[in-house]
Amino acid sequence: KVKIAGPGLGSGVRARVLQSFTVDSSKAGLAPLEVRVLGPRGLVEPVNVVDNGDGTHTVTYTPSQEGPYMVSVKYADEEIPRSPFKVKVL
């Protein structure tokens, strides 16, 4: 029921550039959304989540370095389908 889309989860994500993606939970009811961005060697990146007021949230983060990242998206305390997402930061 929760959908996710945006360039911040795709290929070609650049280090030190603001990345974003949208989480659409409009068909999933009200529940807490939790997003974690883990970088190389367990680095935890700050994440900004904005409630758009229409059942969607815009998530932004800036990867601080190149390497493999994991983006975990939980809704109602459960990983959404395909989460955690593997993101290769260049």
Rank of each mutant, 00 (worst) to 15 (best):
A31N: 06
V44W: 08
P46E: 12
L38E: 13
V13D: 00
L43N: 13
G10K: 08
S20C: 11
Y61V: 01
K74W: 11
L38F: 15
V89W: 02
S64P: 10
T58S: 09
F85P: 01
R41T: 14
Y75I: 07
S25Q: 05
R16Y: 07
V73R: 00
V23W: 00
E45P: 04
G29L: 09
L90A: 15
K86G: 10
P7A: 12
P81L: 05
Q19M: 00
T22V: 11
N52S: 07
D24L: 03
S72D: 05
R16N: 13
K3Y: 11
V13Q: 06
L38I: 15
S64Q: 12
R36H: 13
F21I: 05
G8I: 04
A31P: 01
L9T: 04
T56K: 11
V23R: 00
V44M: 15
A31L: 10
R14P: 05
S64D: 08
F21W: 01
F85A: 05
V17R: 08
V50H: 15
L43R: 12
E34C: 14
V49D: 05
F85I: 12
E66V: 12
V37Y: 02
E79G: 04
S26Y: 04
A76V: 03
P32Q: 14
G42I: 01
P63S: 01
R14N: 08
P40T: 05
Q19F: 03
T62M: 11
S25Y: 06
P7V: 06
G39C: 05
G55I: 03
D54E: 08
Y75Q: 03
V50I: 13
T60F: 12
A28V: 07
R41G: 13
S83N: 03
E79L: 05
S11M: 10
N52M: 11
L43T: 14
H57S: 10
E45C: 14
V87Q: 04
T60E: 13
G67W: 00
G39Q: 03
P68R: 14
G6C: 04
T58N: 07
T56M: 13
V50Q: 15
D51Q: 11
G53E: 12
S64M: 12
R82M: 15
V89G: 04
G8R: 02
T58L: 13
T22Q: 08
S20F: 10
S83A: 05
V71K: 00
E45Q: 07
E66S: 11
P32W: 05
V35E: 00
I80D: 02
K88S: 15
K3A: 07
V35G: 01
D77L: 06
T60P: 00
T62V: 10
L90S: 09
I4H: 02
A15F: 05
S20R: 14
R14M: 14
L30A: 13
N52E: 11
F21H: 02
L18G: 08
R36D: 09
E45V: 08
V17N: 06
T58Q: 10
R16I: 00
T56C: 11
P81G: 05
G10H: 07
K86P: 15
Q65R: 12
L9K: 02
V35I: 12
T58I: 10
G10Q: 07
H57G: 05
L18S: 10
K3E: 09
S25W: 08
A5T: 05
P84E: 03
R41C: 14
F85V: 13
S64W: 09
T22H: 11
Q19I: 01
S72G: 07
A28F: 01
L38D: 11
G8E: 04
K86I: 13
R82N: 15
V44R: 12
S11P: 15
V87N: 02
V35K: 02
S25V: 15
M70S: 13
A76I: 02
L38C: 14
Y75N: 01
I4T: 07
A31F: 07
S26T: 09
P63A: 04
V89N: 05
G10V: 07
K1W: 08
G6E: 06
L90C: 15
S25T: 14
Q19L: 00
R16W: 08
V59A: 09
S72Y: 10
M70H: 15
R36L: 09
G8Q: 03
G42S: 08
E45T: 10
E66H: 14
V59T: 03
V13F: 04
F21S: 01
V50K: 13
T58K: 13
N52F: 07
V2Q: 00
V17Y: 06
K1A: 05
G55T: 05
G42C: 06
E34H: 15
G6W: 05
A76K: 15
L18F: 05
L18P: 12
S26K: 09
L43Y: 11
Y69S: 02
S83E: 03
V71C: 04
P63D: 01
A31Y: 07
L33Q: 03
E79F: 09
L90R: 15
H57M: 05
P84Y: 01
D24R: 02
Y75P: 00
R82A: 13
G8L: 04
Y61K: 00
G39P: 02
P7D: 11
V47P: 05
V37C: 14
L33W: 04
T62F: 07
P68I: 14
V59Q: 02
G29N: 07
E66R: 06
V49K: 08
P63W: 00
R14G: 05
K27M: 12
S72H: 15
T22W: 07
E78L: 07
V17Q: 13
R82D: 15
S72W: 04
R41P: 05
Y61G: 01
N48L: 09
K74L: 07
M70N: 15
G42R: 08
G12L: 12
A76P: 02
Y61R: 00
R82E: 14
K3C: 11
G53R: 12
G55P: 01
V73L: 04
Y69L: 09
L9Q: 02
V50G: 09
V73K: 00
E66Y: 08
F21N: 02
G53F: 13
V2T: 00
I80R: 01
Y69T: 04
S83D: 02
L9C: 06
G42N: 14
F21A: 00
P63C: 03
L18C: 12
P63Y: 09
M70R: 12
S25C: 15
T60L: 09
P68Q: 14
K1E: 07
K74T: 06
E78T: 12
Y61A: 00
L38W: 10
K1L: 10
Y69R: 01
R36N: 10
V87T: 04
E79V: 04
A28E: 04
L30C: 11
V17T: 09
R16A: 06
T62Q: 06
G42F: 07
E66Q: 09
V49G: 02
V49T: 12
V37R: 00
K3M: 08
V44I: 13
K1D: 00
D77Y: 08
G10Y: 05
L30M: 15
E45I: 08
V17C: 08
Y75R: 02
S25F: 08
L33D: 02
V71D: 00
V44Y: 12
G12S: 13
V87E: 02
G53I: 08
K1T: 06
P68H: 15
Y75F: 10
G6S: 05
V71H: 00
S72C: 07
L30H: 15
K86N: 15
S20L: 08
F21P: 00
G67F: 00
K74D: 01
G8H: 04
V23E: 01
V17H: 07
Y69M: 05
K27W: 05
I80N: 01
G10D: 08
E79Y: 07
V47E: 03
R16P: 03
P63N: 01
E78H: 08
T22S: 07
K1Y: 06
S26Q: 08
T22Y: 11
N52C: 10
S26E: 06
